[in-house]
């Protein structure tokens, strides 16, 4: 969804008031070790769960959740920005996969 200027144009050259036409998005990124990567902390936690008396636990893998909010012209733009962040910083592609959910925050 693109926010329109009052005059109907889609862009705004004046950065001073650009923020007035941005939408705010909330994203939740889940970073998880790839299935092939050993998770010794997860294994140790699974073993502790057994000692607690929890039954039937088969797997336990520890990941990270990252919550963020950002301002963007459109949902597409917000999604691109979060993807860049995940690919380049939040996850290491050698050992981790990531997924995200994104939604616009209504005022």
């Amino acid at each position: 969804m693109h926010r329109k200027m009052p005059d109907g144009s889609s862009g705004c050259q004046d950065r001073g008031i650009r923020h007035l036409f941005l939408a705010r998005f909330h994203a939740r990124v889940q970073v998880q070790l790839r299935p092939s990567v050993l998770d010794p902390a997860g294994e140790a936690t699974r073993a502790a769960a057994g000692r607690l008396g929890v039954e039937g636990l088969q797997t336990l893998r520890i990941g990270k959740a990252v919550e963020l909010s950002l301002d963007a012209d459109s949902e597409d733009q917000a999604r691109q920005q979060v993807q860049l962040l995940c690919d380049r910083l939040l996850a290491n592609p050698v050992t981790e996969n990531w997924t995200m959910s994104l939604e616009e925050q209504k005022a």
């Binding site: 902390a41 050698v94 050992t95």
Partner: peptide
Amino acid sequence: LTEMGLLPGALTRNRDL
């Protein structure tokens, strides 16, 4: 060096933590 892509691979938690 691995994080910045100058060397391949990654370094993770020691096997025995």
